[in-house]
């Protein structure tokens, strides 16, 4: 399954994040965080990739703007964005 249209979920509030999805043939994930180091941003990217796999998504360009969200929030926002990005 691939993302078929642009979508997003979340907010820029503290403890939240914005997830932006765009159609793409493969998986590409880019995360930036206002509270964490670059090492941590890589971990967010890994989490997103794992969740995409679980959801059976094989094509998506994912951008994450994190403001200190817990992992469970990252997962929830990604789930919402995916359901919004699949027709």
């Amino acid at each position: 399954m691939k993302i078929s249209k642009k979508s997003s979920a979340g907010s820029l509030e503290s403890s939240d994040l914005m997830v932006y999805l765009e159609p793409m043939d493969t998986i590409k994930v880019e995360a930036v965080s206002s509270v964490s180091t670059s090492q941590h941003q890589k971990e967010i990217e890994a989490l997103v990739k794992k969740e995409l796999k679980k959801a059976g998504i094989t094509g998506a360009y994912v951008k994450v703007q994190d403001n200190g969200a817990l992992n469970l929030t990252i997962k929830a926002r990604l789930k919402t964005a995916i359901s919004r990005g699949i027709e």
């Binding site: 180091t37 971990e43 817990l70 992992n71």
Partner: peptide
């Protein structure tokens, strides 16, 4: 348990 992954600064 809540934050799961502690911070890592190199």
């Amino acid at each position: 348990k809540i934050t799961l992954k502690p911070r890592m600064v190199e």
